[in-house]
Structures are given as structure tokens and as C-alpha cells.
């Protein structure tokens, strides 16, 4: 059924190189064309996908490249979101200050948690990151000043600066898109830097990297902190997106979902995280529209991925692109 080799496949490598810009352009244009097709509702949906993709990209970095199977990443999202709540409660109205602080505080939390957790291996690392996220969850549940179990509503949107706020109804969308694109480019770049290669070396053979004289613990901790900070930034953005923050952001199933989405897309692959998030959330959205029983098809999908596409969905595309490019 395949097209015979021809002009198209010869241009493919160039297309692959330009693909990120194409995707970026399409996403940037979406809020402008959406009203023409009656898709305004989906602008908010795409915004959520982008925010979750930021968090998933950071998890993909430490898990896919660093081999750190953290089952508590939603904890950092929660720290970021509650940082925004704390600042709003204290009277701060600048979005940049709030989101920046979200990243910094989550990074500090990641430094403390990572310093303890990274001394363990394998299943014990999974469990101890989970335990810390659970501690943060229960802390949020019991802090009644910030809403406790019921959550906290952010009634007035944060201000992004005079010229941004009034410019267009969808300014927040473009801000999120810009941040997501920056984060994605940054992690893609770092993954192929000296540091990224060292991290992959640690993933594949930690003993050898120690023997080679790499400061393994510090390298891992640096990655863990960066990922935590980025997840915190996503949490801060999510707080603005939902205009609401509740402890359920940090529930362990959220951490598991993040992991599942990254693996669905493709662990340690450049497009794995955004692809997995987009696919999962789009399916969830579509299924919810048609049925109350939207969990089980997603469950079946996970089993299919495990048994038929263990490298994730993006690997399927890569394989096809690779085959066609090779011809």
C-alpha cells in the first residue's frame, strides 16, 4: 500500500527538521482560526494540553534520559500551584512573579526531596518519591487557610503586564504556548548536550559513570531539581488556567497519569511527552463527550501499547519516517 519511493521521501529529512516550526505555527494560529469553525471551546483545551505537556516534558527528561522513575511528579505541580495561591493570598497580582516563584519554590522542594530520594535505587526510588508526594498531598488537604480539601478559587486573574492583558482575549494562550515551546526546545537541546549524554550514561550504567569520575549524584540531583522547577512552573500555569487549586492536583493517580502519558508517547524520545499528553487528553475529551464509561477504552489502549508498541507511539512514527527516509 506504500507509495513508491519518489520525490516526497527525498524531502523527508528536511520536513522532519521543519516539523517543530510547523507545529508551533499551527498552534499559534489556532486561537485566530478557531472561532471561524466554532471551536472556541478547544482553545482552552489546547492550553491545558500545553501546560500538562510542560510538566510531562520535564518528567520525560529525568525518566527517559536520566532513568529516574519518579512517581511523585504531581507533587511539584502542586507545590507550584500552591505557591501561586500563597502569593495571591498575600496580595501579589503579578503573574510573572507568581509563576517564577512557583518554579523556584518547586525547585527548592525538588532539591530537598531529591537529596534524600536519589540515595535509593529502583523500586525504592519509586516508592520514596511517591511517599514525599503523598506528604505534600496531606499537607495541602489539612491547610484550611488555603481551602484544605475543598480547594482555593483564584477569582481575579493574575496580571501579565499592561500591554499583554488588554491585547487579545487569548493572550494567556500564547504566553503558555511560548513558555511550552521554550521549555521543549530547552530540554531537547540539553538532552543532546554533554550533560544530557552524561545523564544517559548514568541511566545505562551508573557504576561505569562513577568509575569514569562523573559526579553521578550531583548530575542526577541537578536534573531532578530542573524537572521539579519546570513541573512547578506548570503547576503555577495550571492554577491560572483552572482559576482553582485543590489537593487533587497532587493525588498519586495524577503522578501515575503523568508517567503513563510520557510512556504512551515514548520514553526518552523528543516528541514523547507532548505527543503522549495530546493523545491521552484528546482521547479522554472525545470519550467523555460520548459516554460515561470513558476509562476502560483508555485502559485497553495502555494494554495495547504495552504489548504492541512498547517504545511508545512516537516510536511508531519514527520507525515509519526512518524506513521511508532510508529508501
Amino acid at each position: 500500500m506504500r507509495k513508491p519511493a519518489g520525490r516526497h521521501s527525498a524531502h523527508l529529512p528536511g520536513l522532519v527538521r521543519r516539523l517543530p516550526w510547523l507545529v508551533l505555527a499551527l498552534l499559534a494560529a489556532f486561537p485566530l482560526v478557531a472561532p471561524a469553525f466554532g471551536l472556541e471551546y478547544y482553545v482552552g483545551f489546547v492550553r491545558r494540553v500545553l501546560i500538562v505537556a510542560i510538566a510531562a516534558t520535564s518528567l520525560n527528561f529525568i525518566l527517559g534520559y536520566g532513568g529516574m522513575a519518579a512517581l511523585g511528579h504531581a507533587g511539584f505541580i502542586g507545590v507550584g500551584a500552591y505557591t501561586v495561591v500563597a502569593l495571591v493570598e498575600a496580595g501579589v497580582s503579578s503573574a510573572w512573579l507568581a509563576w517564577g516563584s512557583a518554579a523556584v519554590i518547586a525547585g527548592l522542594a525538588a532539591a530537598a526531596i531529591g537529596a534524600v530520594s536519589l540515595r535509593t535505587r529502583g523500586v525504592y526510588f519509586i516508592m520514596i518519591t511517591l511517599a514525599f508526594a503523598q506528604m505534600l498531598y496531606y499537607l495541602a488537604v489539612s491547610l484550611r487557610t488555603w481551602g484544605g480539601d475543598d480547594g482555593y478559587g483564584l477569582y481575579t486573574p493574575l496580571e501579565m503586564g499592561a500591554w499583554l492583558d488588554g491585547a487579545h482575549a487569548q493572550v494567556f494562550y500564547w504566553v503558555v504556548l511560548a513558555i511550552a515551546a521554550l521549555i521543549f526546545a530547552l530540554f531537547s537541546r540539553v538532552a543532546h548536550s554533554r550533560y544530557g549524554h552524561a545523564l544517559r550514561g548514568i541511566r545505562d550504567n551508573e557504576t561505569r559513570m562513577v568509575a569514569l569520575g562523573y559526579p553521578v549524584f550531583r548530575l542526577k540531583l541537578a536534573g531532578f531539581i530542573a524537572a521539579g522547577a519546570v513541573a512547578g512552573l506548570a503547576g503555577g500555569l495550571l492554577a491560572s488556567h483552572n482559576a482553582f487549586v485543590s489537593p487533587s492536583l497532587m493525588h498519586w493517580t495524577q503522578s501515575a497519569l503523568l508517567l503513563v502519558m510520557v510512556m504512551l508517547g515514548g520514553l526518552g524520545r523528543r516528541w514523547g511527552a507532548p505527543l503522549g499528553v495530546a493523545l491521552w487528553l484528546a482521547l479522554e475529551e472525545a470519550l467523555k463527550m460520548h459516554t460515561d464509561y470513558w476509562h476502560w477504552p483508555l485502559g485497553v489502549l495502555l494494554l495495547l501499547v504495552v504489548f504492541h508498541a512498547p517504545q511508545g507511539v512516537s516510536a511508531l512514527f519514527e520507525r515509519r519516517a526512518g524506513k521511508e527516509a532510508a529508501r
Partner: peptide, 8 residues
């Protein structure tokens, strides 16, 4: 991944 699918 697989057992999370079973939970769903």
C-alpha cells in the same frame, strides 16, 4: 503502565 490500564 499495564496494571494502571487494568485499574481503569
Amino acid at each position: 503502565l499495564a496494571t494502571f490500564g487494568i485499574i481503569l
